[in-house]
């Protein structure tokens, strides 16, 4: 009995302590004429994959991941063979640094011309050799306009004692520290330990005011009026505002994060030409339009943007007019990432 219980304990522990990380194996056998695509969950009109197969005869094996870190650990962990991935800006620069992705043959991607010139040669890929933008978006504050004492225009609202217990905060270190850094007037990409510790102290002061540190649950909690203020992505804020008319969205005056998710091809992709054909297809007008429709984020494709309703173009949320204070995340050196991790763990002691 005793042995059995211990065995049982070990088994249960093992079973419950490992979360299945999507564990995609990428279809593996990439015979010519197929392309293995690895994208964020719910981040594409998946009917387009069939359309691509009809047009080109190339089969699409489609898998999804929940965030950049899972994508990264899948690639680093090996055993997968993807041809197309869609990481975000900072992850792209990390993957370039670590030699995980390869240069693209832009001759096979003529639709790259259709990309907004402002999004070409970005900080994360300065010579634009590795990536083709897929979608972009921004972070701002979503808030209940009937329950705030003044219109929100600054990150300081998330640190305001009068909203104690009504504030939601991002539950990942990079985004949370980013907000504190911006409020202090620093760059998202600082590697100055002193500045990061200042940001940490600010977050420590903020912690008792925060109702919950969450990510996706921000949808539910804001739509139900459970909280008054939360940072979130502009595209999703529009969805929440449709569900609850008391909600409003603002870009903080200190500046905020603009992110770009872009197509890349991992090193060792079995079918590079098919991957480039796929990327090119996704950058054409109709796929671009239906993808933006599904994801709610902003399009980098000029012809898709031109065809949008004036209302969307001018709402100041999906396509903000003044983006001077906006900054992308770039990759941080290993020791800075460790410091983030260390301080984040310290914060929740």
């Amino acid at each position: 009995m005793k042995k059995m219980i211990i065995l049982l304990a070990a088994l249960t522990l093992l079973l419950t302590s490992c979360k299945p990380a999507g564990s995609p194996n990428g279809g593996g056998n990439a015979e010519p004429g197929s392309v293995n695509v690895f994208n964020w969950g719910e981040y594409m009109d998946e009917n387009l994959n069939e359309m691509f197969t009809q047009q080109t005869g190339i089969e699409v094996n489609y898998n999804t991941y929940p965030n950049n870190e899972v994508l990264y650990s899948t690639l680093v962990g090996g055993g997968s063979s993807y041809d197309v991935i869609i990481p975000s800006d900072y992850m792209i620069s990390r993957m370039i640094d670590e030699d995980l992705i390869q240069q693209l043959d832009f001759g096979n991607i003529p639709n790259f011309e259709n990309i907004d010139p402002d999004l070409k040669n970005p900080a994360y890929d300065p010579e634009n050799l590795y990536s083709v933008p897929y979608a972009w978006g921004t972070v701002g504050i979503i808030y209940d306009k009937t329950r705030v004492s003044a219109p929100v225009d600054s990150w300081s609202a998330l640190f305001d004692k009068q909203y104690s217990g009504q504030i939601l905060m991002f539950d990942n270190s990079r985004d949370a520290f980013g907000i504190a850094l911006k409020l202090l007037g620093y760059s998202f990409n600082t590697t100055d330990e002193g500045k990061l510790r200042e940001a940490f102290n600010l977050l420590l002061e903020q912690k008792p005011l925060v109702q919950a540190h969450v990510m996706d649950q921000i949808f539910d909690k804001m739509e139900n009026g459970e909280a008054i203020l939360a940072p979130y992505y502009a595209g999703d804020a529009l969805t929440m505002m449709d569900a609850n008319e008391n909600l409003a969205f603002a870009f903080p005056k200190e500046g905020t994060n603009v992110f770009v998710d872009a197509f890349c091809i991992p090193k060792g992709a079995a079918n590079k030409a098919a991957a480039e054909a796929y990327i090119n297809f996704m950058c054409s007008y109709e796929p671009g339009l239906s993808n933006i429709d599904v994801t709610g984020y902003s399009t980098p494709l000029l012809d898709v943007y031109e065809s949008l309703d004036e209302e969307i173009k001018n709402d100041g949320i999906s396509y903000p007019t003044d983006m001077s204070g906006f900054e992308t995340f770039t990759n941080l050196p290993e020791w800075t990432l460790s410091l983030y991790n260390e301080l984040w763990i310290e914060l929740f002691k």
């Binding site: 302590s17 979360k19 990380a21 929940p66 965030n67 870190e69 899972v70 990264y72 650990s73 680093v76 539950d171 990942n172 270190s173 990079r174 912690k207 925060v210 109702q211 919950a212 540190h213 969450v214 649950q217 990432l337 460790s338 983030y340 991790n341 984040w344 763990i345 929740f348």
Partner: peptide
């Protein structure tokens, strides 16, 4: 994570952070 609101994190969350969080530290 769901009911604790991420404010008082437990070991499971700490472990998850090491594998799927900002720093990949298996």
């Amino acid at each position: 994570q769901t009911l604790g609101g991420g404010n008082s994190k437990m070991l499971g969350e700490l472990i998850e952070m090491q594998f799927l969080g900002g720093t990949y530290n298996p």
